[in-house]
Design a protein around this nucleic acid. Structure first.
Length: 595
RNA sequence: GCCGAUGUAGCUCAAUGGUAGAGCAAUCGCCUUGUAAGUGAUAGGUUAUGGGUUCGAUUCCCAUCAUCGGCUCCA
């Protein structure tokens, strides 16, 4: 559906906007005393917010959807009218949310959705059938242009008026709308597919991890099969870091209140931190970030320009208080391990250091099978610490690296943190969904706060540049994304079980056992299914567990010292000598083959 | 945290104001099998937790906890 045309100018956008109006009419007919708020198109559909006397039920949605089809059938034209603020107030008398929007429109500076705009907008209304809405448009010519078989109401959820949690909670009805029934069907199929890949479902089915009530919300228990994947990923991660000039450090999980005072966390981040632990009249906090510890290591000695650049890396486990409603499987948790690193360098080294860290990041991401990578460059916000020249130098270096890496990127003007500009890397998964993984951030704040220095050639102390980066983000979140991307069918190098050996009858078990020993000795992770079940059942189980290779062994294989290879794709490689299969499997592992 | 929904066996789900049932999984047999489910039996539950209404609650009500869909938040 993605075309060069801007979404806001597309027919699909107008269609969805119009569908939102049709829905609002249907809802108001059912609840004449209901208040309407706003109803824009969104990705994949539209929504409309209402203030209604009672919560909507799924049955209500069906009824509303049926009524929408009737309104569409009536083929009422959409007509636009310009009105004065006074006229608008009269029309929307009794609709407090609309009146609030009219006031805002009159004052100028925001559009009908409350978003800031430059020019003072004119006030327009759209009418269709019995429904009138304060609306900038555009819309279709008439309701009949909506295909009644290409719309569907999806869900109802709470949403704050104008997105502010201090405002009343409204009921938001989500719908999806498409140009054709086929498009709708495809969209619903994608939703189904996403459901099948949900890491929470697969996490249970493949026995990868769990989250136990007894332990606590947002605290992940890694089961053996999840843990081996994490271990392999971390081992690869560690090897690459050692090869590329990183030093490993290990730091504790708690630190004294003064440390967090110095770093500024207690002033700016306290609401995300766990409550302090008091011991011997000292308060200690669980760490929400690793930086202060790495900085203390830096400061444990006088640093010379000859020592720089320094790269401290750590799989650092941090704890952050997340509000209960935002937790989500592995993707949003309260305790997680960051693949963290801090670079310290001189001004001169800085551009090269950025170049290095970006290309290093890309290599790591690609090794995990993520080839579609794009970037966001976030620049200096209004309120910021650090000298403007440093900001400029850092931004220039970041952008130059992006260009050299030939990465598609967008600039988020003013989107940087107050302490420094950054690059965020996003990957696209197998379903085309985007996930932000890596972040490379300058920090002009902590070097000041901790008074970090290095001695340069001239014998003077200078402030080092500090770059904070995480490539995978957090192991928990990254794991969740990996699960969804591969739908649980991990590349062979990461698969918890790489080979399932399936003897056909009990008399083949000894042969199978010897085979297992041989393959394990070669470094493969092997599971021997010696249950007295039928071969078909064993294959089914191995398939469901997404084991990449299944080796069926019976009389024929025993006779010839062979294995009959079946891939989880269903592909049959037929009977191969053991050595040949072994070489094949090891090659797949070494090449990090996906499939 | 807020709005709404949900919470029954390891998993997926039934059922009822009179103390719960299936399929899969598990366990024990029988079968000895050629590329996605052979077959029989057994065991498994303080119906999330705590209160309340009732002669009686798993069912109705309240609170708490957790999960799900959103909102807000996500250095």
């Amino acid at each position: 559906m993605m075309m060069s045309e801007k979404y806001e100018e597309s027919k699909l956008y107008r269609l969805r906007h119009s569908a939102a109006h049709v829905m609002a009419q249907a809802v108001l007919e059912k609840f004449p005393e209901g208040k309407v708020a706003i109803g824009p198109p969104v990705e994949d559909g539209f929504y409309y917010d209402f203030d209604l006397p009672r919560p909507l039920t799924p049955e209500d949605l069906e009824e509303i959807e049926a009524r929408m089809r009737e309104i569409i059938k009536a083929n009422a034209p959409f007509t636009r009218e310009m009105v004065s603020a006074e006229q608008a107030r009269e029309i929307f008398n009794g609709q407090p949310y609309k009146l609030e929007l009219i006031d805002a429109l009159e004052t100028g500076g925001v559009d009908e959705h409350g978003n800031p705009v430059d020019e003072k907008p004119v006030i327009s209304i759209y009418k269709s059938d019995t429904f009138v809405d304060l609306c900038r448009g555009p819309h279709l010519e008439s309701t009949g242009q909506i295909n009644p078989k290409a719309i569907k109401l999806m869900s109802v959820a709470g949403a704050y008026w104008r997105g502010d949690e201090h405002n009343p909670m409204l009921q938001r009805v989500y719908g999806t709308a498409w140009l054709s029934p086929k498009d709708l069907k495809e969209h619903l199929w994608r939703l189904e597919e996403a459901k099948k890949r949900d890491h929470r479902k697969l996490g249970r089915e493949l026995d990868l991890y769990s989250i136990s009530d007894a332990v606590g919300s947002g605290l992940v228990l890694w089961h053996p099969k999840g843990a081996i994947i994490r271990h392999l990923a971390e081992r690869f991660w560690a090897d690459e870091h050692l090869k590329h000039g990183y030093d490993f450090v290990y730091t504790p999980h708690i630190g004294k209140a003064d440390l967090w005072k110095t770093s500024g966390h207690l002033d700016y981040y306290a609401e995300n931190m766990y409550a302090p632990i008091e011991i011997e009249n000292q308060q200690y906090y669980l760490k929400p970030m690793n930086c202060p510890f790495h900085i203390e290591i830096y400061k444990s000695d006088i640093r010379s320009y000859r020592d720089l650049p320094m790269r401290y890396a750590e799989m650092g486990t941090v704890y952050r208080y997340e509000r209960s409603g935002v937790l989500h499987g592995l993707l949003r948790v309260r305790g997680f391990t960051q693949d963290d690193a801090h670079h310290f360098c001189t001004e001169k080294q800085m551009p090269e250091e950025i170049d290095f860290v970006l290309s290093f990041s890309l290599n790591i991401l690609r090794s995990f099978g993520f080839d579609q990578i794009s970037a966001y460059l976030s620049t200096r916000p209004e309120k910021a610490v650090g000298e403007p020249e440093r900001w400029q130098a850092a931004q220039t270096a970041l952008e130059a690296s992006l260009k050299r890496a030939e990465l598609p990127y967008e600039i988020d003007e003013g989107g940087g943190a107050f302490y420094g500009p950054k690059i965020d890397l996003k990957i696209k998964d197998a379903l085309g969904r985007e996930w932000q993984l890596s972040t490379i951030q300058f920090d002009f704040n902590n070097p000041e706060r901790f008074d970090m220095t290095y001695i340069d050639e001239d014998g003077q102390a200078y402030r080092p540049y500090m770059v904070h980066r995480a490539l995978l983000g957090s192991t928990e979140r990254f794991f969740g994304i990996l699960i969804e991307n591969y739908a649980g069918a991990f590349p062979v190098w990461l698969a918890p079980v790489q080979v399932a050996i399936i003897p056909i009858a009990d008399r083949h078990v000894d042969y199978a056992r010897a085979l297992a020993t041989e393959l394990k000795a070669a470094g493969l992770r092997v599971d021997l299914d010696d249950r007295s079940d039928r071969m078909n059942a064993k294959i089914r189980d191995a398939e469901k567990q997404k084991v990449p290779n299944m080796l069926v062994v019976g009389d024929r294989e025993m006779e010839n010292n062979q294995v009959d290879v079946r891939r989880r794709s269903g592909e049959r490689l037929g009977a191969l000598p053991i050595a040949e299969f072994k070489a094949l499997a090891l090659e797949d592992v070494a090449n990090k083959v996906v499939g």
